[in-house]
Simulated scan of single mutants.
Amino acid sequence: MKHFLVKTLANAGALGVAVWLLHDITLTGENAGRKALTLILVALLFGLVNFVVKPLVKLLSFPLFILTLGLITLVINALMLLLTSWLAGELDLAFHVDGFWTAVLGGLIVSVVSWALNMALPDDRD
């Protein structure tokens, strides 16, 4: 349970950094508390998308991994971020990614920041 909480907080932080750095990734809300709650809900949604959809997409695109020497990962991460944005819109969460290239850059930022936060945050897994 602690591992799930740490990953969700890391995703929320990474998504927050992407919102802060890129003006085409937006998070709207009346106040800071509402924005934080929305960010945590979007992080949960992003984690669910990465848990359910991403492995299937990676399996189906395996030949492209070999052909592009793994660079297709950037496109897959962008597509997962766009899917999260679309699902957030369907669930009336105030999170939106505007455009594919913004999603590519946002996916790169989210990946790097999430990795760094997962390294920094405590986790009791051995």
Rank of each mutant, 00 (worst) to 15 (best):
K7E: 08
K7L: 10
T8V: 14
T8C: 08
T8D: 03
L9W: 02
A10K: 00
A10H: 01
N11Q: 10
A12W: 01
A12V: 07
A12H: 03
A14T: 00
A14Q: 00
L15W: 00
L15C: 03
L15D: 00
G16D: 04
G16T: 03
V17G: 00
A18Y: 00
V19W: 01
W20Y: 15
L21D: 07
L21Q: 09
L21V: 14
H23E: 15
H23F: 12
H23S: 15
H23L: 12
D24W: 09
I25R: 00
I25P: 01
I25M: 10
T26D: 10
L27Q: 02
T28G: 11
G29D: 11
G29T: 12
E30Q: 15
E30N: 15
N31Y: 08
N31F: 11
N31E: 11
A32N: 12
A32K: 13
A32H: 12
G33N: 13
G33H: 08
K35A: 14
K35E: 15
L37S: 14
L37I: 15
L37W: 12
T38M: 04
T38W: 00
T38C: 06
T38P: 01
L39A: 05
I40T: 13
I40W: 05
I40Y: 10
L41K: 07
L41R: 03
V42S: 02
A43R: 00
A43L: 06
L44E: 07
L44T: 13
L44K: 03
F46K: 00
G47W: 04
G47K: 05
G47T: 11
V49T: 11
V49L: 08
N50V: 09
F51W: 12
V52N: 10
V53R: 02
V53E: 05
V53W: 03
V53D: 04
K54V: 14
K54I: 11
P55E: 11
L56F: 13
L56Q: 12
V57Y: 03
K58Y: 10
K58Q: 10
L59C: 12
L60D: 10
S61L: 15
S61I: 06
S61D: 07
F62K: 12
L64K: 05
F65L: 05
F65K: 01
I66H: 07
L67V: 14
L67A: 14
L67D: 08
T68A: 06
T68Y: 08
G70W: 06
G70D: 10
G70I: 04
L71P: 04
L71I: 14
T73M: 08
T73D: 09
T73R: 03
L74H: 05
L74Q: 05
V75S: 04
I76E: 07
I76T: 07
N77D: 11
A78E: 04
A78M: 08
L79N: 03
